[in-house]
Design a protein around this nucleic acid. Structure first.
Lengths: 139, 139
DNA sequence: CTTCTTTTTGCAACATGGTTGCATTTTAAT
DNA sequence: ATTAAAATGCAACCATGTTGCAAAAAGAAG
């Protein structure tokens, strides 16, 4: 729990959501830069009695309201991450295979000038995997 | 069925696989440039009596042997596509939201020079969505 | 083309996760 | 404190991943 209860409550309110117990708990676990968890990972951090449907609905609601982003790592793994300052999850992400943090990388751009003639771009999703700066020992 | 039975049989053999009925059927539906189908879509094209476990195993085997690539479109949809000349599915793909074709776009490159210092790149997956040249009316 | 060995298939079964409906509980506003 | 609206917990259902095993099919050998 990195953020205070007040932080989380006002964060929820600012997104038009009421601050219920499970919502605060889920958010508190997702709080922090680069933290990205699967539904299962979140479930394991919650009290054992937590209903999986409620968690499912909470995450669906969060995603709908833009509170979190769903990011697909490898086709099997879906991670949830607090949306932060970006409205869409359209920008690139970097996934560190060591510390499992997922970082936004809006500076990584796809060169769409190479798109063949006649192709109309609408959206792009890019996930880069590797080792992040903290884990590579440098810096 | 775009390819002849002989084409498909030798294609299977060249990948070290025997040419059984279901394998030939699945391949025949995936044959053709840009064709990419979900497991469900393939299932619907096969005879109604087809066992879903067999199809599942067939696609798993194809993926393992590098006959097809699994490509994730939006986190929910997994499409299968004949691997073609690329050994890995690491290169970029273009998904046409009109005709639902999935095209390899190895020329689309990610500019990884923008990766911040200390970050080590290992692999990247890029899916671009939009309208393909055939559907945009041009060309 | 029959026999034999190996591979593949079909079926039953179980696990997991998405999804819905509904009654009960909680929230937040009066 | 009361009350209307929202959220939760539970049962239940469905789709799909996955395994084990016996029956069937494929390919090789004679």
């Amino acid at each position: 729990m990195v953020a205070s209860n007040g932080d989380i409550s006002s964060f929820l309110k600012s997104h038009g959501l009421t601050g219920t117990a499970i919502r605060k708990q889920v958010l508190s676990h997702l709080w922090g830069d680069g933290v990205a968890l699967t539904q299962k990972e979140i479930e394991e951090k919650l009290p054992p009695a937590t209903d999986r449907v409620t968690l499912y609905r909470t995450l669906r609601l969060f995603t709908e309201k833009g509170v979190v982003h769903k990011i697909v790592l490898d086709g099997e793994t879906q991670k949830f991450k607090i949306a932060g300052r970006f409205r869409k999850s359209d920008h690139a992400h970097f996934y560190c295979t060591k510390c499992h943090k997922l970082l936004c990388m809006p500076q990584l751009d796809v060169d769409l000038t190479d798109l063949p003639e006649g192709f109309q771009f609408s959206s792009a999703r890019l996930v880069v995997e590797g080792i992040c700066d903290a884990c590579s020992g440098k810096k």
